[in-house]
């Protein structure tokens, strides 16, 4: 079972390609995945969500500002400033949820799993 799951992890870049509290966008098959490295008390957490902003229909979420809002870790879309929860994909201002993807670091490589 582990073996099957492992097949779906796609390596996308080196850990060094991620800068603290910033995002990048990775192309995985025909999907665009926004990956963020968020610092908390000196350690880094990675998050991956879809790069597509449903409000502007532009692929821009990796270029938003990250932070926290009312207890959620979020990214703000650079276009109309909607906030998306990086854990659940839920939009904080509207009843919209965007896809989130598992992400991990394996041997210095960042990997995401896109179904």
């Amino acid at each position: 079972m582990n073996a099957i799951a492992d097949l779906n992890w796609t390596p996308v870049c080196n850990v060094d390609d991620l800068l603290p509290n910033l995002g990048v966008c990775a192309k995985v098959a025909d999907k665009q995945v926004a990956i963020f490295k968020i610092m908390e008390n000196g350690s880094a957490n990675l998050f991956a969500i879809d790069n597509h902003d449903p409000f502007s229909e532009a692929n821009v979420l990796s270029r938003g500002i990250v932070g926290d809002l009312k207890g959620h870790t979020v990214v703000a879309s650079p276009i109309y400033k909607h906030h998306f929860d990086l854990v659940t994909g839920q939009c904080l201002e509207d009843d919209v949820r965007i896809p989130v993807y598992p992400v991990r670091v394996q041997n210095g490589r960042v990997e995401v799993m896109v179904a």
Partner: peptide
């Protein structure tokens, strides 16, 4: 300072509606 900037400041250009 990079992570503090609005995308416009980060890329030093104005983002338009299509990204």
């Amino acid at each position: 300072h990079a992570g503090l900037q609005d995308t416009n400041d980060y890329f030093m250009a104005n983002m338009q509606k299509d990204g």
